[in-house]
Computed example of a mutant assay.
Amino acid sequence: MSITTPQLRDLLVVAQKAVRQAEGYLHDDALGAITAKGDRDMVSEAELEVEQQIRATMREATPDIGFLGEEEGGDTGDTSTRWILDPADGTANLIRGLPLYGISLALVAGRTPVLGVIHLPALRRRYWAATGLGAWCNGRQIRPATTSDLCAAMVAIGDFGTGVHAEERNRVALALHAHLASHAQRTRMLGSSAVDLAFVADGTLDASVTLGNRSWDMAAGAVIAREAGAAVMDTDGSDHTTASRTTIATAPGLRDSILAVLKDTTANSRYAPDRERGER
Rank of each mutant, 00 (worst) to 15 (best):
H240F: 14
G69E: 13
N268I: 06
V232S: 07
H119F: 07
S257M: 02
A22N: 04
T79D: 03
D41K: 14
T162R: 08
V155M: 02
L133S: 07
D264P: 00
L176G: 02
A251C: 09
P6D: 05
G116E: 04
A178W: 00
D234V: 01
D196Q: 08
L68P: 00
A61M: 09
V232T: 11
I157R: 00
S215V: 15
V223N: 10
S192R: 10
I118P: 07
E71K: 11
A219Q: 07
A184Y: 02
S44N: 03
R9A: 12
L123R: 08
H177S: 05
R188N: 11
A15N: 04
L197W: 06
A267P: 05
T204V: 09
L98W: 13
D202I: 06
E167Y: 13
T241E: 03
R82N: 07
R255D: 00
D256M: 08
W216C: 14
T5L: 13
A272R: 02
S104G: 08
A106I: 04
I65Y: 03
E168D: 12
A61V: 00
D10N: 12
R125H: 09
W128L: 05
H179M: 06
D78T: 10
E279I: 14
Y25K: 10
R270K: 14
H177F: 08
V200Y: 10
G38Q: 09
G38H: 12
G24M: 01
T241A: 01
E227P: 03
L262Q: 09
